[in-house]
Design a protein around this nucleic acid. Structure first.
Lengths: 230, 230
DNA sequence: CAGGGAATGTTGACACAGTCAACTTCGAGC
DNA sequence: GCTCGAAGTTGACTGTGTCAACATTCCCTG
């Protein structure tokens, strides 16, 4: 993975680290897990890699560049988790979607600080295209599953991207609420997190299911201009 | 509004500020809007209030206490925005819910940094009960609207808290995605943000609508244990 | 095989942040 | 009128991001 390993196997010397970039990402990730988002520090990562304070600047232009690399790594892992969940239900697209949702929430619960970093203000996708791509890559799996569901007649027709977007909002919203500890105790007491994911996903998937023309659905006016402002 | 005005009208002197606490919250909010979340600083807020660096410690034990006060204020405003939206559709509970969702997303888009702070790692609800209460108070309006919808037969029966939670996930997820600039360009290009809110809300509300027993909904197995791990 | 860039690390320094201790000033109640 | 506590100030400490100047090592070219 590292450009060093790909090269002629430079040996680490006392002076040159060998693969500092990867070591810094690892150290920063460790800090993230143990100390939380505010505990991640450029100097701390350097210490963790056994290197001086300014060394990171040979590999990252910025603190936020380091954080972006960490976040990108997180999205890679998240994508793998989602893909694995999808594979376990290759036959049933709806079950696959549910499993994917649970995988996301599980990932968030297992690595709260990491998930926070991935979707937080510390790194803006705009400034780090690779991060953006990694994020989109992870969530794009949802659209694929939606499409399979449509082909199987389990999900109503329509733009898969638009439909998966609604699902994305739900799942990400739940994950973020969990990670930010904003789920009220009276909810979490009764129902464990994964069941909440199932619940939220089911509510949405029922909305996405094909259905005979329903009076209630059509009664809803398409757009009311008299909504609240601000 | 300020406790100063309520009291015997202490006058501000050169030395004593009069109502530093409120001034600090205002200054911090201004910093948040202009400089972003990372630009909010205790010293900066003190400067903004025309006061020395250590003065805030007479009113806030901590930087995070200041941030919590700012976030709490944000939740108060958010609750008002939601309540106003609900009032504009007193007759149609489903339209009210849609309007509430749009109000939240609008708020988030208008004050991105503020919304981020309100739901971010900077302040943990656990450490600031008043913040937690403000957040719950804002979102509780959803459950009320759901209940009205049930009474009107527009929303299927069930625990209003559980149903509103699914809606909460959707709305908050969309708001957070917007605020974090994670909505892919190919989505935002085609559809403006408020329409996305309508879309997501509609998908979910259709899932929450009362419906004749449907085969597709029942076919979904209640829980599959073979989901992905990690 | 030699030698010279280019990478990669190191040291030292600067500005600024959060935070605290010690001191000062002001308003209110005995 | 005087004192006491609340509210503000000054000065200092540590830790952080960042940079410039210097040191070391790798690897390519002759």
């Amino acid at each position: 993975m590292s450009r060093r390993a790909a090269a002629t196997a430079r040996r680490r010397t006392a002076y040159h680290h060998g693969d500092l970039r990867a070591a810094l990402v690892t150290a920063a990730t460790a800090l993230l897990d143990t100390e939380g988002p505010l505990g991640v520090t450029l100097r701390g990562a350097a210490r963790g890699a056994g290197v001086s304070q300014a060394a990171p600047y040979r590999h990252f232009s910025d603190k936020s560049a380091l954080l972006a690399a960490v976040a990108e790594d997180g999205f890679r892992r998240l994508r793998h988790a989602i893909a694995r969940a999808a594979r376990t239900h290759a036959r049933d697209p709806v079950a696959a979607l549910r499993a994917m949702a649970i995988a996301v929430v599980r990932f968030a619960a297992a690595h709260p600080s990491h998930y926070r970093l991935m979707s937080g203000p510390a790194v803006r996708g705009r400034d780090h295209p690779a991060l953006r791509d990694a994020a989109v890559g992870a969530w794009a799996l949802l659209a694929g599953a939606i499409e399979r569901g449509q082909r199987a007649g389990r999900i109503r027709p329509g733009d898969p991207v638009a439909l998966s977007f609604a699902l994305w909002c739900s799942i990400h919203g739940l994950a973020v609420l969990a990670v930010d500890e904003q789920i009220p105790a009276n909810v979490l007491k009764v129902v464990p997190l994964e069941q909440l994911a199932e619940h939220a996903t089911r509510c949405l998937l029922e909305g996405l299911a094909p259905r005979p023309p329903s009076r209630a659905a059509r009664r809803a006016r398409p757009a009311s201009r008299a909504t609240a402002r601000q």
